[in-house]
Design a protein around this nucleic acid. Structure first.
Lengths: 213, 213
DNA sequence: GTCTGAATTATACGCTTGCATAATTACGCA
DNA sequence: TGCGTAATTATGCAAGCGTATAATTCAGAC
């Protein structure tokens, strides 16, 4: 008679968080098909049946994990704005640079994002989350662009179209760098992004701001 | 005694192609997990066991399907260059416009691409195929850019960095349009792409070329 | 015509998956 | 100190997965 394995109770939120983190880890490492109920439970140090106690179905768990990931990315992005200077151009420059530098450019993040994109194409709920987070990022970029142009006395220009283009550029660089990490030197990526924004917006950033992270 | 179902022999290549097409359809519609051996066989009008006769393993079939997709995309992209005029700037403009217009911007293509990207992140073979096709596209863009700059007497500039940025921009627009089809009007997408290239390269395309598809 | 080999179907096996359910354990509270 | 309840484990099941293998059928060669 092997005795029943001992355990400690972790309380609701902590267990939920652990299960979500385990799910994200597994998806990042081995794709959605690696995130089986048994694998998730094993990584979370728990027994498979417990998942059913916190999530009605596995899909619920995956959806919760996706939401947690997106929230975390949004918060990271928001935090990046905190340390930036007041000068509108410098703020925009810092934001662009941060968007193509670690920890944003993280293979794990790109892997998770591409896994989520597949679901976005098929699931209406996922598409709603994606649209919201996409627009949140783009709106923030648009605001920064509008401020920068305003500081140059160019209020009338179409900041939204510029934000769409800038967002696409950052997305493209982010994805390509994540997929082919060896092909892009971090510094090159940053200088390409900044130079491209100078071209897109017809502006010129100050040259001596590389100290700003 | 139900008699054994009758069949006609399709010969090697036709059956291979049919199986590959069925695989791509299923992945596009329901993601990789929908492309089971049984579903593929059903859609191809065939019995599951036959797959093993043409492909040693299911992974082989999926890899063959990915290669067929990429080859097809590359050939479509190459064909778009055929009908373009000789003027370097007009050629570049037409190529950019084609890259963000149907049939390139096709939800099915984006769905398939995002499914493949997941495998790229994990499988070395897939990564090799991706690198090759990515560079093939980028090199073509770089050549077009170099010609356009050359026609303006600006030979010395860094066409490769500009191609990286331009490629990222096109990729980003392509992906976002594919994921949120209702958010982008095709004409807006095209004008944003063209205007962005004017900014990136500091050039100005002729205004009266919208007739060129 | 019939023979023969390849193309195709049919069947079955072992494994993994998600999920349901019952038995047990830890912990707060009286 | 004992009890009650929520948290957790243990076990089992039905379905679907990829694959192996044997039986059958077609189509062309002689």
């Amino acid at each position: 008679m092997t005795p029943r394995r001992s355990f400690v109770r972790a309380g609701g939120e902590a267990r939920r968080a652990a299960l979500i983190e385990a799910t994200l880890d597994l998806i990042a490492e081995g794709g959605p098909e690696a995130a089986t109920v048994r694998a998730i439970a094993l990584r979370a140090g728990v027994t498979p049946g417990l998942i059913r106690h916190y999530f009605q179905t596995k899909e619920d768990l995956v959806a919760a994990a996706h939401e947690a990931l997106m929230t975390s990315l949004t918060e990271t992005s928001a935090a990046a704005l905190e340390g930036l200077p007041d000068d509108p151009l410098a703020r925009l420059r810092g934001f662009v640079a941060a968007s193509v530098s670690p920890p944003v450019t993280d293979p794990r993040a790109v892997s998770l994002w591409s896994a989520a994109m597949q679901m976005v194409a098929r699931d209406a709920g996922m598409r709603a989350v994606h649209r919201a987070t996409y627009l949140a990022f783009r709106d923030r970029l648009e605001a920064l662009i509008a401020e920068a142009l305003g500081a140059l006395g160019r209020e009338g220009e179409d900041a939204q179209s510029l934000a769409i283009a800038g967002n696409a550029l950052l997305d493209g660089l982010w994805i390509e760098a994540g997929l082919l990490p060896d092909h892009f030197h971090p510094d090159d990526l940053k200088s390409i992004a900044i130079k491209s924004f100078e071209g897109l917006l017809q502006i010129r950033f100050a040259r001596d701001q590389d100290a700003i992270r």
